[in-house]
């Protein structure tokens, strides 16, 4: 069973790279929001591949510190992405206090770099979830872009927040490795669903049209 889930995990890493690359295909033809989302996909896939390499490939070391790059780049790029979609200026200004708070955490306790940072993860993901609900509300007004991706972001970030937030707690528990992986497996499946939605969005709305109408 765990082997299957490991395979799914690996698949999500490669799929994230594939998604980043297929979104790049239409990079020039689309607007700023699309470009920011593409950069987000590419950056996340690079972080995931690096984490996979460090954790399992050549180095066999702890790769927990990659989580910091993950949630910070996710927060910055998705904030800018939602700024483009929602056109609300305060979204840009909201970046500053959150990033300052995370910086303060690292200065106050440098050790945190080698552990999960549940508070920062929860804050950044909750803010993005909030933006996605705002955008969902905006889509009520009529036709809009990135509706499917927005649903994916909402569903995935709401549920994965708890998985990441409980990271340190689970690591400290005295339970078998197998059980610990249950959470990671749930996350893998959720990630796969999220990636599927991103793929559907691209196929439906951003696939290059070869037929000239």
């Amino acid at each position: 069973m765990s082997e299957h889930f490991k395979t799914i995990g690996d698949i999500t890493v490669y799929v994230s790279l594939v998604l980043g690359l297929i979104y790049t295909v239409s990079f020039i033809r689309n607007n700023k929001a699309y470009r920011l989302f593409t950069i987000y996909l590419l950056l996340i896939s690079i972080i995931q591949i690096a984490a996979l390499y460090v954790g399992r490939g050549g180095l066999q070391k702890s790769n927990l510190y990659f989580s910091h790059y993950y949630y910070i780049s996710q927060f910055v790029l998705l904030s800018l992405f939602y700024f483009e979609l929602l056109k609300m200026r305060w979204i840009k200004f909201a970046l500053i206090p959150v990033l300052l708070f995370i910086a303060y955490q690292f200065i106050a306790d440098p050790e945190i770099y080698f552990r999960y940072n549940p508070l920062a993860m929860t804050i950044t993901q909750t803010i993005i979830v909030f933006y996605s609900i705002l955008y969902l509300y905006k889509t009520l007004q009529g036709k809009s872009e990135f509706v499917i991706v927005n649903v994916g972001i909402l569903v995935y970030l709401i549920s994965s927040t708890l998985i990441f937030a409980s990271g340190n707690l689970v690591l400290d528990l005295d339970i078998p490795q197998e059980t610990r992986f249950t959470l990671i497996n749930v996350n893998r499946i959720l990630t796969l669903i999220f990636q599927l939605l991103i793929l559907i969005e691209w196929i439906k709305n951003y696939r290059p049209q070869f037929r000239r109408s």
Binding site: L154, I158, S159, L162, V170, T179, L183, L190
Partner: peptide
């Protein structure tokens, strides 16, 4: 603990849907 987290994740997922 794991069980409770899983249940909570399930509930959050339901809420999102």
């Amino acid at each position: 603990v794991i069980n409770i987290i899983l249940i909570a994740i399930g509930l959050l997922l339901l809420m999102a849907i």
